[in-house]
């Protein structure tokens, strides 16, 4: 039994979801290797080399991996799989992992398992269905298991105590003109990253405008929190899509989640109900968010939020 983890990174550094994937791989057991593929991915590979329990780190560098397209990475993973015969291939259930793993799985004629939240045994996995309203335990019967794991369901590996050896893998046949990466417009923020933040402050349609999100940014800065949003707030154009928390957005599970002006549609709850403590501020006492909140405040957010911010010194 052996596992290949597909590292997610931006060449300069490792994406933390790779650390969650590493914990999941350790839970499965057996030998673990990590594939780091990029244009110049030395720093990302170095960060990983410190992790204990890794048998090797495979490095694949080529301009073909500019933009990390599934079309260029799939042939690399297939050839690596042919060489080492892994029983498991794992990545984080991020936009990257979700786009890539099913393509790899189809090429290997394997039915992949998406967004795994628990590992019962090397072939039995737990995942949420219907936006988290049901929990399915299933046994994967294909000889190779290809799974993406939800970051918040597995602790981040500390990347300590090890010194894995690295090995270069060939990148022949990876260059493709099928899909060309043109560019990206990433949201810049000094606040913690949404999916790994200890505190998240989220706003919904109740904020009424994008400008009013400033109230939440002020509160977030006091709490060293990330800022999220409901689908309604994103659809209304208040904030960009990458802030969306929910079934089709990001899944978060911070120590503290403060929902402001969010009614609590099931699709939103799917993205945050594993948070340890939930606070809801909403003027509608009937809002479903109060049914999952540990602490509710039935109040006008335009008064309550500035008051809360000022009282947190």
């Amino acid at each position: 039994q052996s596992t290949l983890i597909i590292a997610e990174h931006d060449n300069k550094g490792l994406n933390p979801i790779t650390q969650n994937a590493l914990t999941a791989a350790k839970k499965i057991g057996g030998e673990i290797s990590v594939l780091v593929a990029g244009t110049k991915c030395g720093p990302a590979a170095e960060a990983l080399a410190k992790a204990n329990g890794l048998s090797k780190i495979l490095i694949a560098e080529s301009d073909a991996f500019n933009g990390f397209t599934a079309e260029s990475l799939t042939p690399l993973i297939i050839s690596t799989q042919k060489q080492f015969n892994y029983t498991h291939i794992i990545a984080g259930a991020s936009a990257f992992g979700k786009a890539l793993l099913p393509r790899v799985a189809a090429k290997l004629d394997v039915s992949p398992v998406s967004d795994v939240i628990g590992i019962k045994s090397p072939d039995t996995f737990v995942r949420s269905i219907y936006a988290g309203n049901a929990i399915q335990t299933m046994k994967a019967n294909d000889p190779i298991k290809i799974i993406s794991v939800r970051g918040t369901s597995f602790e981040a590996d500390k990347l300590e105590g090890g010194s894995a050896k690295t090995e270069t893998v060939p990148t022949d046949g990876c260059a493709t003109d099928m899909t060309v990466f043109v560019g990206q417009q990433l949201s810049k923020s000094d606040r913690p990253e949404l999916t790994s933040a200890k505190v998240v402050v989220s706003g919904g349609r109740g904020l009424k405008s994008g400008d009013n999100f400033k109230l939440l940014y002020d509160l977030a800065d006091k709490l060293n929190a990330a800022v999220g949003a409901s689908r309604a707030a994103v659809d209304a154009g208040f904030v960009p899509n990458d802030l969306q928390v929910g079934q089709t957005g990001k899944i978060v599970a911070p120590d503290l989640y403060i929902a402001v002006g969010i009614s609590g549609a099931i699709q939103h709850l799917a993205g945050m109900k594993d948070s340890k403590t939930i606070v809801a501020i909403n003027k509608d006492p009937e809002a479903p968010i109060f049914q999952v909140a540990d602490y509710g405040l039935v109040a006008d957010l335009f008064k309550a939020v500035p008051e809360l911010t000022s009282k947190l010194s």
Binding site: G132, M138, K139, K273, V298, A299
Partner: peptide, 21 residues
């Protein structure tokens, strides 16, 4: 695949409504 089970998610109990900030 073989579906082993489909179950309800753990229920979150509603907490307290607080009077003020």
């Amino acid at each position: 695949i073989t579906v082993v089970s489909v179950e309800d998610p753990p229920v979150r109990q509603a907490g307290a409504i607080l009077p003020d900030v």
